[in-house]
């Protein structure tokens, strides 16, 4: 029952976050979605990921959004969509239905494997991936610093003639 509640909360807040007018509110609803996802992940047995999701999705990412908005100074926007809402909804729904047709029903008769812990996998079997991810994070930080660097001249490559 708890899981159903978490799912409902998630879907509700996700819907709100893409439909509210204020960007700040949208970011907060995204945080709620993330919290719901973290709860569901915990119930599914993925304890470590639940914690990571909670701290990153509910903590870090909304802060980033708020930070970006404070840099831009614009917080509200809701122009009419280019693609009619019904068409977009129909397409998304069609996509989901077909995806469901290909995936479902899922055979849930899971067999119990030899239990390996998360940290074992992460730091031993996938140590290279970990390394690459760490490099990736640093690369991300460096690129953001470079992007946000305020230059007097316009960044090279972007030349627009009015």
């Amino acid at each position: 029952m708890l899981s159903v509640a978490a799912v409902l909360v998630m879907l509700f807040s996700a819907l709100l976050s893409i439909s509210v007018r204020w960007l700040l509110t949208a970011a907060l609803w995204l945080a709620v979605t993330s919290a719901g996802a973290a709860a569901l992940l915990y119930m599914l047995g993925a304890h470590e990921i639940a914690v990571i999701e909670f701290s990153v999705g509910t903590g870090l990412v909304p802060v980033l959004f708020v930070f970006a908005m404070s840099l831009m100074g614009r917080t509200s926007s809701m122009p009419t969509p280019i693609i009619p809402r019904t068409a977009a909804g129909g397409l998304a729904l069609l996509c989901l239905v077909l995806l469901g047709l290909t995936l479902l029903p899922i055979n849930t008769a899971g067999q119990d494997k030899v239990p390996i812990t998360f940290s074992q996998i992460l730091w031993q079997d996938r140590s290279l991936d970990m390394l690459v991810q760490i490099v990736l994070i640093f690369a991300g930080i460096i690129s953001v610093l470079n992007i946000l660097r305020r230059t007097d001249a316009e960044p090279p490559g972007i030349r627009h003639d009015h």
Binding site: P81, I82, I83, A88, L91, C95, L99, L101
Partner: peptide
Amino acid sequence: NWNVVGIIGGLIVVF
């Protein structure tokens, strides 16, 4: 937006 429509259209075909 239109690009996403294209992607989803492709997905629909594959699915």
